[in-house]
Design a protein around this nucleic acid. Sequence first.
DNA 1: TTGTACGCGTTATCAG
DNA 2: CTGATAACGCGTACAA
Lengths: 344, 344
Amino acid sequence: MKTSKSRKDSRSAGTVTMNDVAEHAGVSAQTVSRVVSNSPLVTEKTRRRVQEVIKNLRYIPNDAARSLASATSRVVAVVIPTLSSSAFSAEIKSVIDTLEAQRISVIIGNTEYSQEREEAIVQSLLERRPMGVILTGLQHSAHVRSLLQQSGVPVIETWDTDGDPIDMAVGFSNLTAGYDVGKLLCARGAKRIAFVGGAREQDSRAQSRYLGLCRAVEEAGLPDALRVELQMPMSASDGVKGLDLVLQQEPMTDAIFFSADTMAIPAILECNRRGIRVPEQLAICGFGDYELAGLVTPSLTTVRTKPDEMGTAAARMLLARLNGEEETSNKIVLTHQLVRRGSA
Amino acid sequence: MKTSKSRKDSRSAGTVTMNDVAEHAGVSAQTVSRVVSNSPLVTEKTRRRVQEVIKNLRYIPNDAARSLASATSRVVAVVIPTLSSSAFSAEIKSVIDTLEAQRISVIIGNTEYSQEREEAIVQSLLERRPMGVILTGLQHSAHVRSLLQQSGVPVIETWDTDGDPIDMAVGFSNLTAGYDVGKLLCARGAKRIAFVGGAREQDSRAQSRYLGLCRAVEEAGLPDALRVELQMPMSASDGVKGLDLVLQQEPMTDAIFFSADTMAIPAILECNRRGIRVPEQLAICGFGDYELAGLVTPSLTTVRTKPDEMGTAAARMLLARLNGEEETSNKIVLTHQLVRRGSA
DNA sequence: TTGTACGCGTTATCAG
DNA sequence: CTGATAACGCGTACAA
């Protein structure tokens, strides 16, 4: 009879383990394990008995032990730049929904657009030995990249396909999207175009859209687009602020491309209030096709991307890799659509 | 020399463990463990040496092993009804930010307003032995409650304080908030008031707001408020739909209380479009004080709650419990404010 | 179909 | 201040 203070005593005593279930059911722990994991190698009868005991004892498997023994984790990490954008929320929702069926949980890392925070977050997330890591964008510090590559975890980068992924990527071309917007604005006859977005180092995707815009502007033989940089993440009031800054720096501006509908929608509202006629006097184009885009007056011309499809695609791509399926490509380019409405 | 196919071979071979670090550093694994966990019981010299090796070998601790051995998990689960509401996103962001400092990760469970999904999610999340579970609202199935209570995990319910928590709660009184709105609308002289929200069983918090509204309406001696129920989660177009349904069922309605700004804002925009004068002809009140509330015309009268403060408070409350701090109360009631603007 | 032996990578415990 | 040893709860491999 062991009397030494076993470690178990000091733990939350009441924890029911697989062995407890096994004893009560008169089977081996292994059989319980089989029942829990739905192995077909168990008689219907014993399965029922074991499940009964599981229920009575309220046994809940310990995932840490499972992970340790099986070297897999049922966790996927998603790292995003902000939680205050409906686009990223929608992406996460799709990822969660897609992975839930496989009983995989999602851990969220929130960088707030900071590369430093991204490093710390990735490092910390890797300790959970996730089955995959879903990042935002293609721009990451060398440290993050090497960390991820060393670890061998499948990595999926989202929201951008204008570059080479660490491993896999699902997104769209921000460059092309920006170019499309530029073409439209030029075709409308805009002469002085401005762009409002986050700092270029902070949000490289917005930067790509800006570059696309510039290309179109240049092709049209127009002067360079004014670029107004705001602090990320952007809020609705930044729409008004961006509008102010543009008009202040370049009063003759006749078209503004906002890097997100978050800003474009308030900008339209503000124009209405000030009596600035949209689009006649000032054309406005957003990005993201948020819900309200079609409901404001004039309705917002914007670029529709599909965050939910992107999330689903990312999750599927990851599952495919985990299932060892053959990959046709490591990069999925989703289409975006220029949704032409009233504001431009 | 062991030659049997050890299990290690079949694993992702390159994994560096604490023992590897120990060998390379010429110390015991225990010392490495102490260094990793910042134990003060290590000479500065050996600490440096070990850290050097950790860096060179790119050692990343295995959290599953840590959890198993220490019976703690550095994970907190947050269960919300939808990810498409900025309110819940804001709450989550605060929770993540507050917990990040303690290197605690957050796992998100998304119920989509389904109690069934909530059960499955809670069950599954408990397998991770989270340090705490943060739920939305006070309404949960008996199964969920007993599951949680049995497990012994600290539970924090948010967004509602009109009832008894399983364990702890942080929120505000939806009942009072609804009552405040009702008082305001009545004071404005509204005679026929309507409420637009989700199905009552799905969203008990909105239901409480409705009940508060009803009380005020009754006190004013007005006829019962019309209640229009929509499918959760609500989107912007539901604002227009809600408006339509109300006017269709009760054309003489002169005030609408929407259970969320998500709907109230599009409703205002739609009224503008249709030439319905707000608030003269139809007063509109929202809930949540979303960013755009102050930017539409007329600006939206609404109730401000503070999802971010709620998230922070919930996280802190949890940390306090984990630190064994004494609790003054198991329920924190945050204030809400009726923000009176142009629409009501 | 079921059971046994062992190891997964780490921390707790206690001896030095 | 450091190390040896024994768990932690489960899955893998193989035997029965």
